[in-house]
């Protein structure tokens, strides 16, 4: 675009072009932000109370169901989530995501064999989540957990399946 020197006609053209560009840009920038905003804002995960620690057996993983309120845009829904919790002899607790890291099936605890087994493709894990067999690319996913006033608190997360490293969704 030419600078506003010279004739009246070029000034007029310059103002017209600049006005269009100004309106275009002042709309485009906010509107792009408006569209991409949900893609770039992470959901706020919060600590959810799951169970009293005293109710957990030592060295025996337990399947715990609890209700969480999830925020999906403007929609607030209550969902039931499940996790596997394992209390160690020192009273600490490890919490596993209930989803098999291979392809996302739900696995279960076989108390006879004392192993976690995935029914879909036969992945097998020990009590601490270590892979013992099958196609699983990584150990069971451990969820962030803490104990406050005797209550086990968990942040529910999901991870990409099929990878050898843990990548949060």
């Amino acid at each position: 675009m030419s600078t506003p020197v010279g004739t009246r006609r070029s000034f007029v053209k310059w103002v017209t072009g600049l006005s269009s560009a100004f309106i275009g840009l002042s709309l485009a920038i906010p509107l792009i932000g408006y569209v991409i905003s949900p893609a770039l804002t992470r959901r706020k995960a919060s600590w959810m109370p799951v169970e009293k620690v005293e109710n957990l057996p030592v060295n025996e993983p337990k399947d715990l169901d609890y209700a969480v309120t999830t925020q999906d845009g403007y929609l607030e829904t209550r969902q039931t989530k499940a996790v596997w919790a394992l209390k160690h002899p020192d009273q600490t607790v490890t919490v596993f995501s209930p989803i098999c890291p291979h392809l996302g099936c739900g696995y279960h605890w076989d108390s006879q064999d004392r192993r976690f087994k995935c029914p879909c493709h036969g992945s097998v894990y020990d009590m601490n989540g270590k892979v013992l067999g099958g196609p699983a690319p990584r150990p069971l996913d451990v969820l962030p957990s803490k104990i406050e006033n005797g209550e086990l608190l968990v942040i529910y997360k999901e991870f990409k399946s099929g990878l050898s490293t843990k990548v949060e969704l």
């Binding site: 906010p30 932000g33 408006y34 905003s37 403007y74």
Partner: peptide, 9 residues
């Protein structure tokens, strides 16, 4: 309140 520039649009 949540969408970027939502108040503006």
């Amino acid at each position: 309140h949540e969408v970027w520039f939502g108040w503006f649009v």
